[in-house]
Simulated assay, not measured.
Amino acid sequence: MAEETVTKTFILSDSNEMIGLVGVNNHNLDVIAGELGVTLNPHGDQIRIDGDSKHGSMAYQVLTKLSELQRTGVKLAEQDVLSAAKMAQKGTLEYFLDFYSQSIIKDAKGEPIRVKNFGQRQYVNAIQHNAITFGIGPAGTGKTYLAVVMAVAALKAGEVDRIIVTRPAVEAGESLGFLPGDLKEKVDPYLRPIYDALHAVLGTEHTARLMERGVIEIAPLAYMRGRTLDSAFAILDEAQNTTPEQMKMFLTRLGFNSKMIVNGDISQIDLPSKKRSGLVQVQRILKGVNHIEFIYFSADDVVRNPVVASIIAAYDVVEKDAADRRAQSDKETN
């Protein structure tokens, strides 16, 4: 039985706050309404909330937090509004303002870089307190970007001497040999997300200078074999495409005064069908090991366009149904 619709009224202490809170053409209110399934109508210094009791209360709490954030001088963006709405649904809204109380570092434009949601906060906290952190979840959750941010922050603080970023070039396969240029030029397209993150945080020219000096190294995973990474911040991206042997090889490169981040999305494995993913296997092998932590992201943690989270959730449903059918078929066969 559907819950009865109730009406709440959110009143702003200052009518001048209304424009920033509701957004251009009421876009911020539309984002909240879409996430929480309520109707929001602004009028004067008030916003009328229509919906069931539970979601109406959530919407009121979200508006309260956003209003408080706006009064600190933060100009609300869609990501802020979306994050607040998702945190309300997950019961973590009480931590929302904490995200804005401190920044990790400033980007190339001088803007503070902060976590966007509770999942990212857990991820950053795990990196700060562990030697190896695994970030597992869908694209768009900020795993790669935050890994680069944390690496740059450690470099600037003098905690490490260099940053090493790697990933397997599985998608290239044998076609690598047919691509023009040397090995670096052949694998660079697969490392584009890393370059984009570094350029956003450090700037293009500064990144180039650090790479020329060897302070930042971006290389295929095969280049890690036989090395010991002391005083380094190492990032393995797209780790779902490592074999178990490659994963072990990378993890055992960890040297003194070093940190590692291993990121991947186990729903996007590009390995040949007969090969196992090292990222899938390592979760079982290293579970519970000291100084190693696994952080799992979901579609709710996506910080891209809200449609991306909906796409991921829809695919998850289909893939779960397919997995259930395969399991049932195997059971009947046996």
Rank of each mutant, 00 (worst) to 15 (best):
P138Y: 09
A139L: 07
A139S: 12
G140P: 13
G142Y: 13
G142W: 14
K143D: 04
K143T: 06
K143C: 07
T144C: 10
T144L: 10
L146P: 09
L146R: 08
L146F: 14
A147P: 05
A147E: 13
A147I: 03
V148T: 11
V148W: 10
V152A: 11
V152I: 06
A153I: 00
L155N: 00
L155V: 00
K156Y: 07
A157C: 02
G158L: 04
E159P: 00
V160K: 15
V160T: 14
V160Q: 14
D161Y: 06
D161Q: 12
R162V: 00
R162W: 00
R162P: 00
R162H: 01
I163P: 00
I164Y: 04
I164F: 05
V165P: 00
T166M: 10
R167W: 08
P168Q: 14
A169P: 00
E171L: 00
A172H: 08
G173N: 15
G173K: 15
S175P: 01
L176F: 06
L176K: 09
G177I: 04
F178R: 15
F178C: 02
P180L: 11
G181L: 00
D182I: 01
L183H: 07
L183E: 03
L183W: 07
K184H: 08
E185A: 12
E185Q: 13
V187C: 05
V187P: 05
D188A: 12
D188M: 10
Y190P: 01
Y190G: 02
L191P: 00
L191Q: 08
R192S: 02
R192K: 13
I194W: 06
Y195E: 02
Y195D: 02
D196A: 06
D196S: 04
A197M: 15
L198S: 04
H199Q: 11
A200T: 02
L202K: 15
L202G: 03
E205A: 14
H206E: 14
H206I: 00
T207V: 09
A208D: 14
A208L: 03
L210E: 10
L210T: 03
L210P: 02
M211P: 01
M211R: 13
R213L: 09
G214N: 04
G214S: 04
V215Y: 10
V215R: 12
V215I: 15
V215M: 07
I216Q: 14
I216K: 15
I216S: 13
E217M: 05
I218M: 11
A219M: 02
A219K: 01
P220W: 09
P220A: 12
L221N: 05
Y223H: 06
Y223G: 01
R225G: 01
G226Q: 09
